[in-house]
């Protein structure tokens, strides 16, 4: 697939001049010299990256290259792993998220996450979506909560399929529907950044297409970071692409440029299928 043909009409693509402007004004996440260790293993080495607001950023790279690990440092999900240690600086809107005063719970409300395998709670569809708003106290009453749930499900592009069975179990949905439910659950807490860890790897091509379409829509409101194994997917949905290899960020730039004219030979080898 030729990445340059995608979304020609997108404002992100038309003017090189605007790019620098965006970098300054819409810098959502700034990571500087990030190191991640699992015990003695140095999993992420010196990664510095700027992630823009209202943009889809794709992390690509062979298995075990650290892209998922890096994604999980962005909302401190790695905190749950005892042996994991993060060094360097990651800031969101200028706030260092590894500052001692930062409560990871608040951070995760701001940085939502969708996982590789759809993981709805074994509860009703409604409760799945309502759980986040409930624990964060986003709704004052039932009517408001209903509204939040409906809005989130519409955002997740699943409202029409489930509106008549909101109290049916979320785990009874098909895989693709479950993943969109998980996306709806993630957006229900009104996050500013949405992290997606290979969200389509467990889905069939039709469900994948639906989720990809959804990701493109989510870009209107969020900064989306997606880890993917599929280079076609990265080319289809993202504006920026970062290529990771053996824990290093090898190359980061406009998706069109990475796929058509990579600077680093390793990137070229990977996208042409010689490594990975």
């Amino acid at each position: 697939m030729d990445a340059t043909n995608i979304k020609r009409d997108d404002p992100m693509y038309d003017a090189p001049l605007r790019k620098t402007e965006l970098d300054v004004q819409q810098n959502k996440i700034a990571a500087r010299d990030v190191q991640v260790y699992y015990g003695d293993t140095h999993a992420i080495k010196d990664v510095s990256v700027d992630i823009l607001d209202k943009t889809v950023t794709a992390f690509i790279g062979p298995s075990g290259c650290g892209k998922s690990t890096f994604l999980r440092t962005l909302n401190r999900m790695n905190d749950t792993i005892d042996i994991c240690r993060v060094e360097g600086q990651i800031s969101i809107d200028g706030d260092d998220i590894y500052d001692k005063r930062v409560d990871p719970v608040q951070l995760r409300a701001k940085v939502g996450m969708v996982f590789q395998k759809p993981n709805p709670f074994p509860k009703s569809i409604y409760d799945n979506v309502a759980y986040g708003p409930r624990i964060h106290g986003l709704a004052r009453n039932k009517a408001e909560l209903d509204e939040i749930v409906e809005k989130a499900l519409r955002r997740g592009a699943i409202w029409n399929e489930v509106k008549d069975r909101l109290h049916a179990p979320g785990t009874g949905l098909s895989g693709g529907q479950q993943q969109r439910l998980c996306i709806a659950r993630a957006v229900a807490t009104e996050p500013e950044v949405l992290l997606m860890d290979e969200p389509c790897s467990a889905l069939d091509p039709i469900a994948t297409a639906q989720v990809e379409e959804l990701i493109d829509e989510l870009r209107q409101d969020y900064s989306v970071v997606i880890v993917t194994h599929s280079m076609q997917q990265a080319a289809r949905v993202s504006q920026k692409t970062a290529f990771f290899h053996l824990g290093n960020l090898v190359e980061y730039g406009e998706t069109s440029q990475i796929f058509t004219n990579p600077v680093d030979p390793r990137t070229e080898s990977y996208i042409t299928g010689r490594i990975g």
Partner: peptide, 17 residues
């Protein structure tokens, strides 16, 4: 399954929640 814990933590639940 750990995915349930991830899901809950991912929407901003505390460990206890």
């Amino acid at each position: 399954p750990p995915s349930i814990r991830d899901a809950a933590l991912g929407v901003g639940a505390s460990k206890m929640q």
